[in-house]
Every structure is written in structure tokens, then in C-alpha cells.
Design a protein around this nucleic acid. Structure first.
Lengths: 198, 198
DNA sequence: TCAATTCTTGACTCGTTCGTCCAGAACGCT
DNA sequence: AGCGTTCTGGACGAACGAGTCAAGAATTGA
């Protein structure tokens, strides 16, 4: 019926994510993205609408994939709940330390740059954070059922604390903290979680 | 000898801070700053050199004032060390919640936007974070001497954890967390700090 | 008062960047 | 093959923003 698209939308979004991630929104040029993807600007605008809309697509995708990935790391049987929590916290510290370019997380970076002036970004970020907290809360509740964490503490409160520590690890990583420091924070955070008596 | 400056450098820096803070670096125009201060662009460039140099001045100032302010909150006698720590943690949560514009902290925002590509900003942010950690460590060590926190935990590790929580509170605030959530995190973080036996 | 010096103003230059537009290409259907 | 439709590429327009510059203003010392 009509000429089919020559490019893979998924691939273009990935490339755009890469650019926005390392440069930020304002500093990334549409021409960059066009060149990086090999697309002409006409195709780019035709397919995605404009810079802001493209960023929203990328940001949404990113938030979704982060929540998915964390979900895969945290969901499972009660028996392994604490091991999964511990692995996740250390994984975030390691990933942040390994990010030598200090790009941090696009969720945090995008929110920092745009949340104040872009309602859509703000809302999406809020939703993603809420989802992450829910995942943590479920896992912590499982830890409590399994006797790995004291049952007399509100799992929601502990989840909020752990989430804050994770976001803090990333912020410190962006500010140049060493891998040792970040791993140390992960360990200390896990160590101070209240254990059941005996 | 020569015509004296008509403007107050301090005031210009404050105005520039305001602009950079709410708009970010890339999205803030020198014309904006010129208009906001009432200065002509010539004076602005004559006095500060250029956009990047002006931002560096603003950023340095900001980092210095944050470290100073925290220092004033945390330094004092051993007897009040825990009260000061507690007050500080709650103060950060309250301040973040009160920041309805979700601007967050310029230190975090600037680092997020520029640390990857601007060596000077990265270095300054790292130094500020290190100074904050040192202040926390001193206060926590005082708490331990006074018997408010278990003495068998490395104060440096606890300080790193608390710092991560504080940075995390701010990150969550920017993502839209409620005052209740933020205050809750502050309380939970203080509650899980290890107490001396009896 | 005059000269020397530094500050001020805003118009100007020049590169940059978003978004548009259009001629032509690729495809499926008849 | 011919046609309608959609995609492609890149030239173009228009606005914008960083930094410059030159003419004039304010000030002190002689």
C-alpha cells in the first residue's frame, strides 16, 4: 500500500536514549540523533513528532525498563527474599561505581533537569519511583515472613529507607565517590536493617 | 582614578544562582541573567568572563555555603551531638518537602547536568560531598563518645550511610515524594542507627 | 577643568539548532 | 505497468543565544 519504514523504531529509541543520557535534554541536538541513527530529520520528525515528544518516549521506555529489571531482581520465593534484597543493593552500588562516566541513571538525570518544568516527566518519574518502592516493600515483607527482618517494623517505611539509600548511592556516585565507599554504604545499610530478636 | 562598578557582585551572583538553579545550566540564557540583574551584557562579561566561568563562580559559592550551613548545624558539644544529627536529618527532609518547585539542591542538579563533561564542576562537587561526610563523621563520633550511638561501628561508615540517605531524600523529593514519606525516611534512618547495648 | 581610566549599554555578528518542506524513492494493489 | 500512499533525505527558514565592540558616561587625580 505504501512505502514501509526502513528503520527499526526500537533501535532509534535506543540510540536517542544514549544521546539524551550522556548529554542531557537541552544539550542534545536533534541533528546529533539524526546523524547517530542515520536517519534524515524528516523521518525523525515524521516518526516521533519533535524533540520533546521523542524525549518523553525515551524517558517512558527507560522508566519502564528500570522497573522491569528491578522487578526481575526482586520477585521470587520468600525463602530467597533477603538474598535478593542484598544482591540488589550491592548490584546498584557496583553498577554505580562501574559507571565511570558518571552518567548516573537517566531517571534521576531527566527528573533533575526537567521535572520542575515538564509535568509529563515529573509524573512519569513519580510513578516509576512509586513502583520501585512497591517492589522493595513486597520483598521486605517477604523477608519478614521468612524471619530475616524484624516483623515489628513497617515494611513500607523500611522500603522507603532502602529506596532513599539506593538513590543516594547513585547521587554520591555521580559526585565521584569511590567503589569502596559505595559498596560500604550498601553493606552498612543492609547491616542496620532490624533483625528479629535471636 | 576610574569609574567604579555600579552593581554589587554579591547580588549579581545571587540572581545568577537563582536562574541557574531553576533552569539548569544549558537552559539559562545570559540575556536572562542580564535582564534579571539589570546589567548590560558587556558588564556581565566584563566582570565574570563568560557563561561557564559565571556558573563556576555560582557553583563554588553554593557548595561553600551549603558546607558552611551544615557545619553550623552539626558542630558543637558532644552532649548535644545526637540532637544536632537528628535535627539536621529532619531539617533536610522538611526543606526538601517544602521545595514545592522540586528544584532540589543546586549541588545535585549541577553535578547531574555537568559533572560528566565539566571537570571543574565534578571536582568541586566531590570536594563538597567529602566535606559533608567529614562533618557527619565528626558528629557521629561525638554521638558515640556520648553513648548515643553504638561505639563498635565505624563512624565513617555510618556517616556515609547517613549522607546517602540525605542525598536520597532529596532525589525522592525531586521525584515528587510527599512530605510524610520524606519525614518518615528521616525517622526510620535515625531509628535504625545502632544504639549501645542498654 | 582636563586627562586618564574603567565601567556601561545595547546593537551587532556569527554560529547553532529546531522544525518545515518538497522532490523523489519505495512499496502494494489493481 | 500505473497509481496512490507513505517514507526519505537534506536543503532551507527563522529564531535564538553566546560573545564582541565602540561610543559614551562616571569617577579620581593633577
Amino acid at each position: 500500500m505504501a512505502r514501509p519504514k526502513k528503520f527499526d523504531e526500537r533501535q532509534v529509541l535506543d540510540t536517542a536514549r544514549e544521546r539524551f543520557w550522556s548529554g542531557g535534554y537541552a544539550a542534545t541536538r536533534m541533528d546529533d540523533i539524526a546523524e547517530a541513527t542515520g536517519l534524515g530529520k524528516g523521518s525523525l520528525y515524521g516518526a516521533f513528532g519533535g524533540k520533546q515528544e521523542l524525549f518523553h518516549r525515551v524517558f517512558d521506555d527507560y522508566c519502564g525498563s528500570v522497573v522491569d529489571a528491578v522487578g526481575r531482581q526482586l520477585r521470587g520465593d520468600d525463602a530467597d527474599a533477603y538474598a535478593r534484597l542484598s544482591a540488589h543493593v550491592y548490584a546498584v552500588a557496583a553498577a554505580t561505581a562501574a559507571d565511570t562516566a558518571h552518567r548516573g541513571c537517566l531517571l534521576a538525570k531527566g527528573a533533575a533537569e526537567l521535572a520542575e518544568h515538564d509535568q509529563t516527566v515529573a509524573e512519569r518519574a513519580r510513578a516509576a519511583i512509586e513502583a520501585l518502592q512497591a517492589l522493595l516493600e513486597d520483598d521486605i515483607a517477604a523477608c519478614q515472613r521468612n524471619g530475616d527482618i524484624a516483623a515489628d517494623t513497617d515494611p513500607g517505611k523500611l522500603a522507603a529507607l532502602v529506596l532513599a539509600v539506593l538513590r543516594g548511592i547513585e547521587a554520591l556516585g555521580k559526585a565521584g565517590a569511590s567503589e569502596e565507599t559505595l559498596t560500604g554504604i550498601a553493606g552498612t545499610a543492609l547491616a542496620v536493617l532490624p533483625r528479629p530478636a535471636h
